[in-house]
């Protein structure tokens, strides 16, 4: 079990390393920092000093190692768009807002998708099953940014129940969290349904029924535990989609989290902040994947004892 986790951890670290390589090589693509950071009328002497200070005269691999060394310490330089802020510090400031939003989105997804998927499987072919399937089809075809706007239209403009955008109270979180969760609900409900259907068909479930175990216990004690592995593996993907969703939805709702910072930084050509935000997203993503692996081990005894 420990070996399995170490293996997963090592492969996550490796992926993270690849991301730093990508981010570094992209910073090379974006042109020389000399043009970006120095005024046009800089003298040759100033340029030489700048190049030496920044290590731009070093070979590329050495520049990358310096970049990596700084990155490990969270040092991506200072923001160009928000003066006086360190790039990573600025991103970290915004991180709690994004985590709150993402956390609520995950919660909403679980609360709706799991019961819906289970009910659809248990009452296969019934009205609730058809509703769940229709919802799954519709949910995966609806662009989340458009849904976000339609939600504003209905709940903020028309009904006046919730604020249109911004940050502050819990009410500000509700619409964006629903907009992020929407797609996930349909995906997770569909997955839960098919996993449950497969398990409900298994021999040991039939045996439990023959033994006279109550239907409630069959579904929730016997079937659900075995079916849970499949939705759990989806959690890794869930983390990625919520991350992507947060970039888009924060922009819809002008919600000042990491995703909003990313888009603003790109618009302002603030490369240090873009680098910091990408690495921060990648770290969150890797950590949540490791968490999934850990849960997976707990739920699936075959790995625990293997």
């Amino acid at each position: 079990m420990l070996r399995y986790l170490l293996q997963r951890g090592a492969s996550s670290l490796f992926a993270l390393l690849i991301i730093t390589v990508i981010v570094f090589s992209l910073s090379q693509l974006s042109g020389s920092p000399v043009d970006a950071l120095l005024p046009d009328d800089a003298t040759q002497e100033q340029i030489d000093i700048f190049i030496r200070e920044w290590g731009l005269d070093q070979p590329l691999w050495k520049q990358y190692l310096t970049f990596l060394g700084n990155a490990v310490q969270g040092d991506f330089g200072v923001s160009l768009k928000w003066p006086g802020e360190s790039a990573m510090g600025f991103v970290l400031d915004r991180m709690p807002a994004t985590l709150r939003l993402g956390g609520l989105a995950i919660l909403i997804t679980l609360i709706i998708a799991l019961p819906l998927g289970i009910a659809a499987a248990v009452y296969k072919g019934s009205a609730i099953d058809r509703i769940a399937q229709g919802f799954a089809l519709l949910g995966q075809s609806m662009p989340n940014f458009w849904l976000g706007i339609v939600l504003i239209w209905i709940f903020s403009v028309w009904l006046g129940w919730l604020p249109t955008s911004g940050i502050g109270s819990f009410a500000h979180l509700i619409l964006p969290a629903i907009a992020i969760a929407w797609f996930q609900i349909s995906a997770l409900a569909r997955l839960t349904r098919s996993a449950m259907l497969e398990v409900l068909d298994a021999e040991y479930i039939k045996l439990a029924r023959v033994k006279g175990v109550s239907e409630w216990a069959v579904v929730f004690k016997h079937a659900l535990r075995n079916a849970a592995v499949v939705p759990l593996t989806y959690f890794g993907i869930l983390a990625a989609s919520i991350l992507t969703g947060s970039v888009v939805i924060e922009s819809v709702y002008s919600y000042p989290g990491m995703g909003w910072v990313a888009i603003e930084a790109i618009r302002g050509r603030d490369f240090p902040v873009v680098q910091a935000v990408i690495i921060a997203y990648a770290v969150i993503y890797m950590l949540s994947n490791l968490l999934v692996d850990l849960l997976y081990v707990i739920v699936n005894p075959r790995i625990k004892h293997g």
């Binding site: 992926a15 991301i19 970039v247």
Partner: peptide, 9 residues
């Protein structure tokens, strides 16, 4: 494992 959005950014 890499969300496409990160590369897009």
């Amino acid at each position: 494992a890499l969300p496409a959005m990160l590369l897009a950014l």
